[in-house]
């Protein structure tokens, strides 16, 4: 085992995930949160931008809090692939020795993080929901474990960097400050197309909604059985965003960017209406911090009722339209004669 000296490692890195110029909001959430980490340690906050023609993204990274931006700009990085990303990232880590590396826990982030952590023998904590730094500079990465019953603190004392993927939606992004200063540094691109192991034939992305911003959410589950109409109707009446359980996403009824839960987004709206959702732990993990939770389910034993403020046992196809009617009535201004 190669022993390393942790004191040779410094700075906090945040990976800025962009696809064709679209930046995943978790990247900005992390940049904002990482500001508090470097305040503790007095280090630099470094953003990593990998892609092709990413100047706009680089500018925004500075506006969002980066002191320095490392840019690897090359055609080999668009569209995203694990092997070139991992290889490039690894080379940068080995050369510059960051102490902490934060990556959004998206499919992309979770895809390549291991390709960096393995060759550098870094500690990698997956899917964190809380982070801070102890006095000795050791990252305290917290994540739910065992079905969300426990919050485990994972630390990495003897290896560097300390890497973590962070679940989208758990931190707030700050608005960009366009007058911020920061350094931009273009790095050597170490990957060549000829060395890549994979080829993307086709990529198709629809809208990527950001449900983490919504104040009110109506979430669809397996119970909707392919019919989104009752959900739309209720969401309209409430002025709410539509989200979904994994079941509804897997079936293709709702777009993946709207999935709530352990492998989706974490949301904390004022109102969360779970419609035809059983309440599996993996789902609860993503919505348990909502202010008020309402459950509509036809199974009185559904676990969701234990995690809801108000529940109704009934057929969602009847309850949703009726509830929408009742609520719309409420929104009418009262007329006093």
């Amino acid at each position: 085992m190669t022993d390393i000296d942790p004191s040779e490692y410094s700075d906090v890195w945040v990976f800025v995930e962009d696809h064709d110029g679209d930046v995943m909001s978790v990247s900005w959430e992390l940049l904002n949160e990482a500001k508090t980490l470097v305040e503790e340690t007095g280090e630099e906050l470094v953003a990593l931008v990998i892609g092709e023609d990413v100047d706009g993204v680089v500018e925004e990274a500075i506006a969002r809090g980066a002191d320095r931006v490392l840019v690897a700009d090359d055609g080999v990085f668009e569209p995203y692939r694990a092997d070139p990303y991992g290889e490039q990232f690894r080379a940068m880590v080995e050369e510059r020795k960051p102490s902490i590396v934060l990556i959004g826990g998206t499919h992309t982030g979770r895809d390549f993080a291991g390709r960096v952590a393995v060759p550098t023998h870094a500690g990698l904590t997956a899917d964190c929901t809380e982070i801070d730094v102890a006095e000795d500079g050791v990252l305290q990465a917290r994540r739910p474990a065992f079905g969300g019953n426990v919050l485990a603190t994972i630390i990495c004392e003897e290896h560097r960097p300390q890497m973590a993927t962070i679940r989208p939606g758990v931190f707030e992004a700050a608005p960009p400050e366009n007058d911020r200063d920061g350094e931009i540094e273009r790095v050597d691109v170490v990957v060549e197309e000829a060395d890549t192991l994979t080829e993307v034939l086709e990529r198709s992305t629809g809208e990527t909604a950001d449900v983490t911003e919504a104040d009110r959410i109506v979430a669809a589950g397996g119970g909707i059985d392919g019919d989104l109409e009752p959900i739309r109707r209720l969401a309209d009446a409430l002025g709410a965003e539509i989200a979904a359980s994994r079941h509804a996403v897997d079936e293709g009824w709702v777009d993946g960017s709207r999935q709530i839960g352990q492998t989706g987004k974490t949301v904390r709206p004022e109102l969360y209406v779970a419609v035809g959702i059983s309440g599996a732990v993996q789902h609860l993990e993503g919505m348990n911090d909502s202010e008020v939770v309402v459950a509509i389910n036809n199974d009185p034993n559904a676990p969701i009722f234990d995690h809801a403020d108000y529940g109704i046992v009934g057929d969602l196809f009847e309850v949703c339209p009726e509830l929408a009617d009742a609520l719309e009535g409420a929104e009418q201004p009262e007329v006093t004669l």
């Binding site: 474990a145 919050l151 630390i155 990495c156 529940g311 109704i312």
Partner: peptide, 24 residues
């Protein structure tokens, strides 16, 4: 490289758990 530094049980969020009888 990683170790478990500690575990805390997460206090479940206290919900009203009121099941109502009708839509109104």
């Amino acid at each position: 490289p990683t170790n478990v530094g500690g575990m805390e049980t997460i206090e479940g969020v206290d919900r009203e758990r009121t099941v109502v009888d009708d839509v109104d």
